[in-house]
């Protein structure tokens, strides 16, 4: 029964990680840049949810909307500052910019909200059901359900709409996309927007699941999102989501195996192991910049 409990915990935590991985991968694939500010995006989402709770008297829908609003605004600023100019420049320039941006975000939140841990109200209720002697909060199931719905919406957007086609085109070959008339700036801004919105919502769910938030939580989150995303070669969304799920489950089961402090180690080890054996992750899609072989066929 302990196994089932951990499995369910793992699934909910994994669902949140999966969501984060999806957002991260979307941005990395779309804009072509690894964003070191992603953890802080999630953190901002968590804090906007926290503030929304006091503003809107714990109304779930309004909290969600507020989180989406804040994340969207942030993403537009992020794009203008760190990405718009540097799409064709050496990658590390925008990477440094995102690092700077992340520092600004983190410290801005710290200035506004203070340095202590904040307790998040239980937006999704406290009810639970019993199964074989253990209590399972409905919250965990709601989280999984919300993530599934979001994935479905995203999948529909990417695969069945014109906008989705544009997004996918730009992520596969930016030059070719611009040659056929796609506005690359607008599309990368949109991709970044969606990715950050997803990140913000992941932050919201994270806050609900863990119940407490800190301005400095971004760092570990960045690493986890990155680890999961790397498995998909930084461009494959379903694989990244799956990896996030696995990571969550694995982390929960490892409580039994490893001492408390080493838990965060799991995601980093996972990351390095993946990269040692599969330097480009499991790419199921030909990515222009990562194969030099077919260059001179």
């Amino acid at each position: 029964m302990y196994f089932v409990e951990q499995l369910i915990n793992g699934l909910s935590q994994g669902a949140i990680y999966a969501l984060m991985a999806i957002g991260f991968t979307l941005i990395a694939g779309e804009v072509g840049l690894v964003s070191f500010t992603y953890g802080d995006t999630v953190m901002l989402g968590a804090f906007s949810a926290y503030w929304a709770c006091s503003l809107f008297a714990e109304n779930f829908l309004l909290t969600v909307l507020f989180t989406i609003l804040v994340s969207s605004l942030m993403s537009i600023v992020l794009h203008a500052v760190c990405m718009a100019q540097f799409l064709d420049a050496p990658k590390h320039i925008s990477m440094i910019c995102t690092i700077g941006f992340g520092i600004i975000l983190k410290n801005a939140v710290q200035l506004i909200a203070g340095y202590e841990v904040k307790a998040m109200p239980e937006l999704l209720g406290r009810s639970y059901f019993e199964l074989g002697g253990i209590r399972i909060g409905y919250v965990k199931l709601y989280i999984v359900a919300i993530v599934i719905v979001l994935c479905a919406i995203l999948s529909f957007l990417l695969n069945r709409t014109k906008t989705g086609v544009r997004l996918r085109a730009v992520s596969q070959d930016r030059k070719a996309a611009s040659l056929i008339g796609i506005d690359v700036q607008r599309t990368t801004r949109l991709g970044n927007l969606i990715g950050c919105m997803i990140g913000g919502l992941a932050g919201l769910l994270y806050a609900i699941y863990y119940g407490s938030i800190l301005p400095t939580m971004g760092g570990a989150i960045s690493m986890k999102a990155m680890s999961a995303s790397v498995l998909g070669g930084l461009c494959n969304i379903p694989v990244a989501a799956f990896a996030g799920l696995l990571l969550g489950i694995f982390e929960n089961f490892s409580i039994a195996l490893f001492p408390q402090g080493y838990r965060d180690l799991i995601s980093f080890l996972f990351l390095i192991l993946v990269l040692v054996f599969k330097p480009h992750g499991f790419e199921f899609r030909f990515k222009k910049h990562s194969r030099k072989e077919a260059e001179h066929a």
Binding site: C82, G100, I103, K106, L111
Partner: peptide, 16 residues
């Protein structure tokens, strides 16, 4: 308190 904020801004400015 604002030290790190300035630091972040400095980095971004340098890249720009």
């Amino acid at each position: 308190e604002y030290r790190m904020l300035l630091y972040g801004i400095l980095i971004i400015l340098t890249m720009w």
